[in-house]
Design a binder for these strands. Structure first.
Length: 229
DNA sequence: GACCAGGCACATC
DNA sequence: GATGTGCATGGT
């Protein structure tokens, strides 16, 4: 436990030294940050940037404008971010929540109890654990450690937790190893994404398995024993 | 052409 | 609670 804590802290120091402060989240305003959180779900950030630019050009890079667009129009604008029909539904549900529940009053949200708010946000269609924690940390400044695919991959490879560890398990391990400091949680997650993008590619699912070599995988119709007509 | 990218909801077991 | 599947674009 003690060694794990030291390792987590040392990894942070080394990443900060190597990459420098990341100044996250990369958004111009609060609404754009929320929209970016939804659009970046399982998408490359470069594609999200295209979608955000298109929204800005259309004057719809804020929650009220986005919500007021017809679905087909919004979907067309966010098309480069992928899953555009799905993300249209999610974006509208999320926008509706912030508008109707909070009137987009983020200062008021910052006065809420963070863990009660976390539960509430998890009930919003389109927001899973990572997106909710991004809202809590990057939008509202609460000290919640964001876990993503990079964090799970890097953490598992460094023995911080088992491969296949759950989101909550990974979050607990990072949060208990570090001082409860939103600024550091912010920086650490951003650094993990930075190093993950460039130096921590996923392992092949099953090394040597013929199912991973689709290019050479035989057509079942050509296999011996297949009834050819 | 395959794989990957800052997930999530839903069905099923 | 764990696992599988559909959702889609653009870069490598």
């Amino acid at each position: 436990m003690r060694g794990k804590r030291t390792l987590i802290r040392r990894i942070y120091e080394q990443l900060l030294k190597a990459y420098g402060p990341q100044h996250w989240w990369p958004a111009e305003g609060e609404d754009e940050l929320i929209i970016g959180i939804v659009l970046t779900q399982n998408a490359a950030w470069s594609n999200v940037e295209r979608a955000l630019s298109r929204l800005k050009e259309a004057g719809a890079c804020d929650l009220r404008s986005a919500l007021s667009l017809p679905d087909a129009r919004l979907a067309e604008l966010i098309r480069p971010a992928g899953y555009f029909n799905l993300k249209t539904r999610r974006l509208k549900a999320v926008a509706r929540y912030f508008i109707e529940r909070w009137d987009c009053d983020y200062a008021s949200m910052r006065r809420a109890d963070p863990m009660e708010l976390r539960e509430e946000l998890l009930g919003v269609y389109g927001l899973g654990r990572e997106s909710v924690d991004c809202v809590l940390l990057y939008l509202l400044g609460f000290p919640v450690f964001v876990i993503d695919a990079y964090t799970l991959r890097i953490g598992a490879r460094h023995g911080l937790f088992a491969e296949g560890a759950s989101y909550e398990e990974a979050r607990r391990i990072f949060e208990s190893a570090l001082p409860c400091d939103a600024a550091q949680f912010n920086e650490y997650h951003a650094l993990l994404v930075q190093v993950g993008k460039h130096q921590c590619k996923p392992k092949p699912r099953c090394e040597g398995c013929p199912l991973n070599q689709r290019r050479n995988f035989p057509d079942p119709a050509a296999l011996p024993g297949h009834n050819q007509r």
